[in-house]
C-alpha cells in the first residue's frame, strides 16, 4: 500500500481551525451514571471542537470519561447513563435533539465509530464482505447486492487487505486484519468524522504502527476528521493535531500536540508524561503519579486531582479551577496559572 510513502507536511491546526466553523462542536457536555449507590458524574462540563480534517485526541486513564464522551456523541449511551447537560453540534445540527430518523442518517453516514477491540465484534458466521455490504445496504437501500459486494472488496483494498479475502470469515483473518475490516466498515459510507476508541490497543506494536500509518494515509486521501481516544500518550502525540487531557470526567488541559508534549502545564499531564519510559535519551528514574484515580462516587472536592498532586496548595481542595487560556491556544484548568 501507498501508506508507506505518505509525506507528512501536516501542520498542527491549532487555533486556526477553530476560527472556521468546526465540524463537531461539543459544548458543556455532562453525563451521569445513575447507579444504585448514587449518581456518578462521568463527564462534567466538557467542551471541545474538531475542525475539518483535524485529528483531536482525548487522552486519559480508564474511568476518565473518554469513551463515555464518544458514546454520548453517537447517542448510544444506555441506561443508567444520562446526558444531563450540554450540546453536541455536528455541522451546526444538535445531535442531542435528533429524532430516530435523524440519528439513523447521522450515524455511520456522518460519523462512524471504531470501538475498542472491535475486532472481536465481527459476526463469526458472516463473511467479512457480507458484514461490510450489510452496512452499505442498510444505509443506501437502492444498492444491489452485487454493487455492495464490489464496494466491500474495494474497501478491503483501501484498508490494505487483499480484496480476494472478501469471502473469508473473521476467524480466517489475524487480529490486525480483523481490525482493518472494522475500519473498512467505518469507512463504508464515507463519513466526515470517525471516532476511534482505542483502535489499536489490543494489537502488537508492529501491527499498530502499520494500521496507524494506514489511517493517516486514508485521512489525507479522503479528508475525514478523527476523534482519537487512547490512554497511550506517545501514540496520541504522534498522531493527533490537538489533544485534550481528561482526568475524572473533566478536560484539564488542551492544546496542540507538540505544545502538549514539549510544555505540559497541568501537573496531571506532567505526571502522565513522566509515566512513560523513553526508548531513547538518558535513563531517568520516573516517578509516575502517586495514588490511584478517584472513586467517582465520591469525587474529591475542589480540583479532582489535588489528592495526588505534588503542587497542591490552599485553594486546590476548596475551589474547582476552570479551563483558562494561559498561552495562545493552550488551555489549563489549574490554580497554578
Amino acid at each position: 500500500m501507498a501508506s508507506a510513502t505518505v509525506a507528512t507536511s501536516l501542520s498542527p491546526q491549532s487555533s486556526a481551525s477553530s476560527a472556521a466553523e468546526p465540524l463537531l462542536d461539543v459544548q458543556d457536555l455532562s453525563v451521569e451514571y445513575q447507579t444504585l449507590r448514587g449518581p456518578v458524574q462521568a463527564v462534567s462540563h466538557v467542551s471541545f471542537s474538531i475542525g475539518q480534517g483535524e485529528v483531536f485526541g482525548l487522552a486519559g486513564e480508564s474511568g476518565s470519561g473518554k469513551s463515555t464522551i464518544a458514546h454520548a456523541i453517537m447517542r448510544i449511551l444506555h441506561s443508567p447513563a444520562v446526558i444531563t447537560g450540554g450540546n453536541v453540534l455536528f455541522d451546526g445540527d444538535d445531535v442531542l435533539e435528533m429524532d430516530v430518523d435523524g440519528l439513523e442518517a447521522f450515524r455511520w453516514r456522518d460519523v462512524s465509530m471504531v470501538f475498542q477491540s472491535a475486532m472481536n465484534a465481527l459476526n463469526p458466521v458472516l463473511t467479512v464482505g457480507e458484514q461490510i455490504a450489510d452496512v452499505i445496504q442498510r444505509h443506501q437501500p437502492t444498492t444491489t447486492k452485487q454493487q455492495a459486494k464490489d464496494r466491500a472488496a474495494e474497501l478491503l483494498d483501501i484498508v490494505g487487505i487483499d480484496r480476494n479475502r472478501v469471502d473469508d470469515y473473521p476467524h480466517q483473518l489475524s487480529g490486525g486484519m480483523r481490525q482493518r475490516v472494522v475500519i473498512a466498515i467505518a469507512l463504508a459510507l464515507k463519513p466526515q468524522l470517525m471516532i476511534m476508541d482505542e483502535p489499536t490497543t489490543a494489537l502488537d506494536v508492529v501491527v499498530q504502527k502499520d494500521i496507524m500509518q494506514q489511517i493517516e494515509y486514508l485521512k489525507k486521501e479522503l479528508g475525514f476528521s478523527i476523534l482519537f481516544i487512547t490512554h497511550d500518550l506517545s501514540l496520541m502525540v504522534e498522531f493527533s493535531d490537538r489533544i485534550g487531557v481528561m482526568y475524572a470526567g473533566e478536560i484539564v488541559e488542551t492544546t496542540n500536540a507538540h505544545e502538549l508534549f514539549n510544555k505540559p502545564l497541568h501537573p496531571y499531564t506532567q505526571g502522565l508524561m513522566a509515566s512513560f519510559p523513553a526508548l531513547v535519551g538518558p535513563k531517568e528514574t520516573l516517578t509516575g503519579i502517586p495514588g490511584s484515580p478517584p472513586n467517582m462516587l465520591e469525587p474529591p472536592s475542589g480540583c479532582r486531582f489535588h489528592p495526588r498532586c505534588s503542587k497542591a496548595f490552599a485553594p486546590c481542595p476548596l475551589q474547582q479551577p476552570s479551563l483558562r487560556e494561559v498561552e495562545p491556544g493552550h488551555f489549563v484548568a489549574c490554580h497554578l496559572y
Binding site: 508507506a4 505518505v6 508492529v206 501491527v207 499498530q208 504502527k209 502499520d210 493517516e216 500518550l233
Partner: peptide
C-alpha cells in the same frame, strides 16, 4: 521502529518490514 515516538511523525518513519 514501531514503538510510538512523539518526536518522529508517523509518515516520516522508515518502514523496515511489513506483515505479521
Amino acid at each position: 521502529s514501531a514503538v510510538p515516538n512523539p518526536e518522529i511523525a508517523l509518515g516520516q518513519r522508515e518502514v523496515v518490514a511489513r506483515g505479521e
